[in-house]
Design a protein around this nucleic acid. Structure first.
Lengths: 268, 268
DNA sequence: ATCCGCCAATGGTCTAGTCCAATCTTGGCA
DNA sequence: TGCCAAGATTGGACTAGACCATTGGCGGAT
């Protein structure tokens, strides 16, 4: 299920070449008429080698690759960077570079995070980073159909699966309608259960957007990844049975570790 | 030469900035010890300045920024690169760097591309890149529930909206069940209309995955973007009323130009 | 045996330059 | 006026090297 390297759409057959000299591995020459940067050819070469290895195995250091392929370390780093972004490699300062495990698939559905992760056979946990009532910024106010600066409850959590950081999530709720939800979340782990049991609110519909953003240094720190790596930003607004907006959620997932799946049906 | 004189880049604000993402506020930055690289501060500085400008306006050249902020051109390029990835800037070799228009939102739904784009007030067109019957690769065979190497019709198209390249799309269909669909598509533009009218097939359900990949040189060329820029890879499998898989589609969208939205409802 | 501090190795950041490819400008020529 | 060649300017690729921060192993002290 991890396929993605090959079988891309319009990928030029490109480096389906023969590497003749084992000792001095050389970067394949650019095909005639195609201007392919050196770092890109190196990347393809490395991708091939990585394919032979198992997740967790180490690959040579940047300096070694630099001399082995007779390119500058900068060029090696550019190739490695792209492989990291694609989720093929993981780098750790001071330790080395390692083959990454395959991407995980997360379903877009109107169920609780806890259920989702448990259903995939992993152990879900959360760390509450922040719970405060704040004046609604304009975008939050718009989504929740409140006045700007109306009090909203913000809940910020770090989501983990098997103790690995998975996403940073910020939820916003109407602080008047859901008074006390912040305190309640200090001792609860499932917001959806709390809404159902304490506030008699059930979510029936949601709109979720997905786009690519880049990790800030602190986001990178929390997600245990690098600054500037692509993240997937999911923005969700959910409505209850009376079609009132209930929650507005922003979640940041590592783009190199996750993919998302949505189930569509014919419009009515 | 350890710490050289700082240029105009403000020192790390690092405070609880409500973090500035293009459309609206991102998740707040926790002040946990995160070292802020120079290129990142420059990026934030430039983001601020860009916010004052209108799409299409030019910003100073890399060499000018390099001297203005007293950093190397490499550092400027790293900052600009991230802003390009985030969809804030567009760069053109030989011309300059310009403020990018805002991202476009594309809905994930089981309707035809032509309808979708037209509904958003733009003019949809397609360029048929390739139409051939080929032996099914293993992933295609799996999705379409066929034997490996069974004949499948591949249709590869470049999707445009208002003449701007939007996505590269590859569709796979069972070549026996939909015999002649390749030829028919030479003179038609809507596959879904063709399926409905010529093959009495209506799609009622689909599963769509979204993940981040990077543009190869040829993909970058077709989408009029840069090699190595993040793309959003959408993979769709659709089923008909008898719950038979009909199509398997892979689409590549520019991650800096598009976001996607899905509508979710409560599971039954 | 255990702990701790030093140190080598790793990836992360940054510099100051070179050369190349694409584009725009400019001026001369028909 | 219209065209084209030459040069200037832009971003793209690449080099060789420096210093920093983090990590983990080794060896000595306890």
């Amino acid at each position: 299920m991890g396929e993605q390297a090959e079988g891309r759409i319009a990928d030029a057959p490109a480096a389906a070449r023969v590497s003749d000299a084992p000792p001095a591995a050389r970067i394949p020459d650019a095909p005639i008429g195609a201007r392919v940067p050196k770092y890109y050819r190196l990347k393809q070469e490395l991708r091939q080698e990585i394919g032979q290895l198992s997740p967790g195995m180490a690959i040579p250091t940047e300096r070694v690759l630099s001399t082995r392929f007779a390119v500058s370390r900068t060029t090696v780093r550019q190739a490695l960077h792209e492989l990291v972004v694609e989720g093929q490699l993981q780098r750790f300062q001071g330790r080395g570079t390692f083959v990454a495990p395959p991407k995980l698939t997360q379903t877009l559905q109107l169920t609780s995070y806890t259920q989702d992760i448990a259903a995939s056979g992993r152990r879900p946990t959360s760390r509450l980073l922040d719970a405060a009532v704040v004046p609604a910024p304009s975008d939050v106010a718009t989504r929740l159909e409140l006045r700007v600066d109306a009090p909203v409850q913000r809940l910020e959590r770090l989501r983990l699966a098997d103790d690995e950081p998975m996403a940073i999530e910020a939820v916003y709720l109407d602080a008047e309608r859901f008074a006390g939800v912040g305190d309640a979340m200090l001792h609860s782990s499932s917001l959806y259960a709390l809404l159902r049991e304490q506030y008699a609110t059930v979510l029936v519909r949601a709109e979720e957007t997905i786009e690519t953003v880049l990790a800030s240094p602190s986001e990178a720190g929390m997600l245990d990844t690098g600054t500037g790596l692509p993240l997937l930003l999911l923005t969700r607004t959910s409505w209850d049975e009376q079609d009132r907006p209930v929650e507005y959620v922003r979640s940041l997932y590592r783009g190199d570790r996750y993919r998302f799946v949505a189930n569509l049906s014919r419009p009515a």
